[in-house]
Amino acid sequence: MKKFTDCDGLAVPLDRSNVDTDAIIPKQFLKSIKRSGFGQNLFDEWRFLDTGEPGKENLHRKLNPDFVLNFPRYQGARILVTRDNFGCGSSREHAPWALQDYGFEVIIAPSFADIFFNNCFKIGLLPIVLDSKVVEKLIAQIQATEGYRLAINLEAQTVTTPTKECYHFDVDSFRKHCLINGLDEIGLTLQHTDKIKLFEQKRQSEQPWLFI
């Protein structure tokens, strides 16, 4: 997994709640058997005016000038600030892959859908939950200030604004440890191989029907 170092980057507001994984990466792009290359079709139906198909070159497609990610001032953004229940819908990890591939390192929202939230940590994309009032304020400030940047410090668990307002966020200690060190979770789990085997043997003797 990619190591998460601190992030100091341009922020972009996506002022909608319930942004679902179908919107983040439409299903026609899920046919790829690769893990990379999804960024060019992130939010495809919102970013482009025509319908995207796998293999279609973005160069020749018409951008939707009204979609926030297309505003010149937000080019190169690394932090997405959005509303409640971000990432709801399917379990597709293609959604976090697409966000990361596009260049995002941090997503800030008042709440996330469970599976999406989980998936982000597996690839080194950091989802941060902040109070909805704080998110409200951040969105307003980003919209009002060109070049608005946020500094994220994972070690200290803080988000700092350009005017040095500092917000604390919670993160599970195990996940934090994995992110900071870029640890391979499978490798970590396999350190418990003996325990897993023991558990399995016991289970098989107690509930043999699970093993037929």
Partner: peptide
Amino acid sequence: FGIGTSEVEHVLATQCLV
């Protein structure tokens, strides 16, 4: 429950999930 692709790999490899 549903899981992402990294977790699919994790279950394939370890029969467990974190």
